[in-house]
Each structure stands twice: as structure tokens, then as C-alpha cells.
Design a protein around this nucleic acid. Structure first.
Lengths: 184, 184
DNA sequence: CTCCTATGAATGAATG
DNA sequence: CATTCATTCATAGGAG
């Protein structure tokens, strides 16, 4: 697949088009899996700036990447099957957490989404120390977590572009990822 | 490679949507560079009618073309300053063309760049039809032409991130074309 | 080399 | 007017 080609920031740069490095793809993919779909101009700039440390990149590359990735996720979703079967529902505790469906137009309590709910519960109870990092306690009016095709939202659901102050789900759930993705 | 195949200009186009011919694009681009941004209904009709001699086209195609071109000239995925004063619906004049070196930090008049300038002159006099190999970017403030390692800039030189909308080089340099918009 | 696939880039066509 | 979606073109890298 994609490999640190001979074309990136290496010598003999005769490339006509952008060739993302593995690190760049990693970050982009993480952001995407975290729920980011259509980054704003500012987000694009920040991401691009950040990724430039891994190799040559332009804003438009980031823009196109998300455009393409989103489009192809959708287009190829026809051939893809669903993910693992969700566990079991739990009791409602945090009524301010909602789940948005894929379209982002419909919401329902987090308790209706067992898979995510368990994670959230753990975090809420401190089982996951990363809870502190979770921007749920910040002044953000919402938080989005992408899990499968669901989005976890707080306080201000039903926003279309709710990926504004995006905190990476991985960065929270999976601490090893130290990427300063929270900056985006 | 581009010849009237089954549809218009592009290859193997399935003709599901309008595919502008090179001539059509040229006229549209000329009009755009001449300052036209939001043509009226009547202008659209006239333009469309005129362009129909080059191939199939509808009014809405012209409408969308200007919408898209204007929008993409604007933010094209990179930093842009605030809105500038209107495009100044004037015919292209060459005295405001500058050349940026590869770093984009140094500028000098186009007339100091014999290679490009001569070609431009030739086109002016009809000796040369196009500089088709020169991708060009157009904006309210500037125009960019990638020629080797040079960038041709207009009005507002010394911008680094001027990679924007594409426009044919000859569309700008080639002057005799009546872009007074009077006909449209 | 040719063919194929993944994917970067571009742009027509909407929609709010 | 901006934003987004849908298609399409173009190209790099791998397989055979």
C-alpha cells in the first residue's frame, strides 16, 4: 500500500501530486475516525500545519483528503458489513449525552447506544483516567465521538458541524496516541 | 486527446453532465478575467447562446460555472485575506503583470522575463494561439502562472499561497478578445 | 511492459 | 454566496 515512497520529502522530488506519508495518513485517519468529516478552513490550516512536520503538504491536500475519504467511505459502504454486535443497554445516568445518527439529524439518548454507553460510563466513573482529558468538562458546548457511524454529542446536539473543537476519540480512549490532536 | 468524442471535449465522458469544450472554457474564463462575476439572466442567455456554437450547453451551465469559479477563486483551501474591492471590470492590461521567483519573495515586471513575455507578445499578435502548458491561477488580486519555476503575478504580487483556480494563460494575456462584456 | 487498484485532484451540480 | 455532494479525470505503485 502506501509506503514512504521515493517521492515525498525525499530526494528527487519530481512528484506532481501530493503523496502523504504514513504519519500524515495516520493523523488524518485518526481525525476521520474521530468523527471529523468536513474540517473548517481553520481546522484545515492547523491540520496542514501540523502535518507539515511529516512532509510537504498543502491545505488543499487536507481538504481533498477529507472530501475523498468521506465520499469513498460512503460509496464503499455498500459493500461493507456492520461491525460487532453491541453489548447491552445500561441505566441512564448522564442525560446530557446524546447520540446522533449518521445523518446528524436524529438524536437519541446515549443509553440507547450500548456500545458507546459502556465506554462513556467507564469514563464517567473514572475507570478510564482519560476522562479528564475528555472535553466533556470543558466549556465546549458539545463533544463528538465517532464510533462506528454514531456521534456522541453533549449539550448541543443536532448540530451539523459539530466537529469544531474536536478531541480525538483515540486520544482519549486510547492514551497511547499522544498526538496533539486536541489542537485541531 | 481532447477531441469531440461522444460528447463534448473530455474523453469518454458519459455526458451525464455538461462537459465544457476548450473553447467554451476559454470564453468563460476570458469573461471572468475581464471582471464578470455574476452575470445577469440576460447575460447568461447571451453567453450560453454564444457558446452553443462550440457545443451543447445550457443556461444553467453558465450560471453554475460562474458561481463555482467565483467561489473557488475565493477560498481555494488556503489562507485568504478579507474581501477586496470589486474585481474592477476592466480589460486585462499587461503592465500589471509581474513575475515572482520560485521563492515567491522577489518580483519583477513581466517584461523582464523575455521567455514568457515573448510568448505573450506572440499570442497577442496571433502568432501563437496558446500557452496551454502554463497552468494559471486567477484571483481578484493576482494571477499566477506556473512557468518553470516562475510565477506570473498580477496586481498583488508577493503572495506565497496563490495556488487557486485554474485559468488558461492565454486567456489573460491575449488581449484583442473583446471582453468589454458589451456583447453579453 | 500492461493492467489494475487506490487515491489525489478537479469540477459540475446542487442546497440552505 | 458558502458549503457540500457526486462524478470524473489523472496518476502512483503493485501485481502478473
Amino acid at each position: 500500500m502506501e509506503e514512504a515512497g521515493l517521492c515525498n520529502s525525499r530526494v528527487g522530488a519530481k512528484c506532481g501530486r501530493w503523496n502523504p506519508t504514513a504519519e500524515q495518513v495516520k493523523v488524518l485517519t485518526d481525525l476521520f475516525s474521530a468523527g471529523l468529516r468536513t474540517p473548517s478552513t481553520e481546522q484545515i490550516q492547523k491540520i496542514s500545519s501540523h502535518l507539515s512536520s511529516f512532509g510537504k503538504i498543502e491545505n488543499k491536500n487536507v481538504f481533498y483528503w477529507f472530501q475523498n475519504h468521506k465520499a469513498r467511505e460512503r460509496h464503499h459502504h455498500h459493500n461493507k458489513k456492520r461491525r460487532r454486535p453491541p453489548p447491552a443497554p445500561t441505566s441512564p445516568v448522564h442525560t446530557d449525552l446524546f447520540v446522533l445518527d449518521h445523518s446528524g439529524r436524529r438524536e437519541f439518548p446515549i443509553t440507547k447506544l450500548p456500545g458507546i454507553w459502556n465506554e462513556a460510563e467507564e469514563m464517567k466513573r473514572g475507570k478510564k483516567k482519560t476522562l479528564e482529558l475528555f472535553p466533556l468538562t470543558s466549556n465546549d458546548d458539545y463533544v463528538v465521538v465517532e464510533a462506528d457511524q454514531y456521534k456522541l454529542v453533549r449539550n448541543s446536539p443536532l448540530r451539523n458541524n459539530m466537529v469544531g473543537e474536536l478531541k480525538l476519540f483515540d486520544a482519549v480512549i486510547e492514551p497511547p496516541l499522544d498526538l496533539s490532536l486536541g489542537f485541531f
